[in-house]
């Protein structure tokens, strides 16, 4: 009876529910479509913006501009044939590696004249190896220098430190003297500087200490350390074209930015 009574209601429900469902589906689809269109519009706008920016960048960084900077501002020249490396062997030939250790048997067999020169080359060779390692920790040189300028009042005590850090930055130049100067500087630090400074300096010169442990006991030769001159006939380091590493360092980039700013400023009325 009940079913008969509610039959019409059921029919209505049967008719309405799918209709409603269909309507909801179409509504949902329409909403999605609208969303999609919006995203596509945004993509289009972004693409146009990218294109505009690309155009502006391309125009500002045109070949003529780059040529002007390369030629007039930086005075760059084309790399010579020697600066190109064709293989591993040629690359290896650029680095001054230590001589291979000569076995004692061979040394004994060598004529007497060359015998005294045996230990002499071996010592610098060892140091050189050590200094090659110091290339990596050379980065904290700047903090050290800064610290010393902040804390040390008399200029006299600042100078040896600067000299020493200069030496540390270019370790390959004169290996043996450098080692001695470093140990001298290190040995002198506790006497002159504050403890905090000494610690910093020790961190910076740790490799040097490892390099020449024998001279640990050497007397502080402060004057020597102070007046160590940069090597006179210092050869310009051969620069090898390594494109992957990026030819511009941060300094050059900052320089380019400065010039660009200046040019832009001058162009404005």
């Amino acid at each position: 009876m009940m079913a008969a009574r509610f039959r019409s209601v059921t029919w209505v429900a049967v008719a309405v529910v799918p209709a409603l469902a269909c309507y909801l589906v179409t509504q949902h689809v329409a909403a999605e479509r609208a969303q999609l269109a919006k995203v596509e519009r945004q993509i289009g706008q972004s693409r146009r913006a990218i294109r505009e920016l690309e155009t502006e960048l391309g125009t500002r960084g045109s070949m003529a501009q780059i040529e002007r900077w390369n030629g007039q501002t930086f005075a760059l020249a084309a790399p010579s044939a020697q600066q190109f490396i064709t293989g591993d062997v040629q690359l290896a030939s650029l680095s001054a590696l230590p001589a291979l250790p000569v076995p004692a048997v061979v040394m004994a067999a060598a004529p007497a004249a060359s015998a005294p020169s045996g230990p002499a080359p071996s010592a610098p060779a060892e140091v050189r190896q050590a200094t090659l390692e110091t290339v990596k920790p050379a980065a904290p040189v700047h903090p050290v220098r800064q610290a010393s300028f902040e804390q040390v009042k008399p200029a006299a005590s600042a100078r040896p430190l600067r000299e020493a850090s200069f030496e540390a930055a270019k370790p390959a130049a004169r290996p043996l003297r450098e080692a001695t100067s470093k140990t001298a500087a290190k040995a002198s630090t506790p006497a002159r500087a504050t403890p905090a400074k000494a610690e910093v300096r020790q961190v910076a010169f740790k490799p040097a200490r490892r390099a020449a442990p024998v001279e640990e006991e050497a007397q502080p030769l402060l004057r020597q350390a102070t007046y160590v001159k940069p090597p006179r006939e210092q050869k310009a380091p051969t620069k090898v074209a390594m494109l992957a590493n990026g030819p511009l360092d941060s300094r050059s980039l900052a320089e380019i930015g400065r010039i660009a700013n200046a040019e832009r400023g001058s162009r404005r009325p």
Binding site: I43, G44, R48, R51, G58
Partner: peptide, 28 residues
């Protein structure tokens, strides 16, 4: 199908770009 974004929003330039052999724009 609904028109694509490119044609709708004027991304296709009225005249094609000219680029060099490495894709650097020479005319746009």
């Amino acid at each position: 199908p609904a028109p694509t974004a490119a044609s709708t929003y004027g991304l296709i330039p009225p005249r094609a770009d000219i680029v060099d052999r490495n894709g650097v724009t020479l005319a746009r």
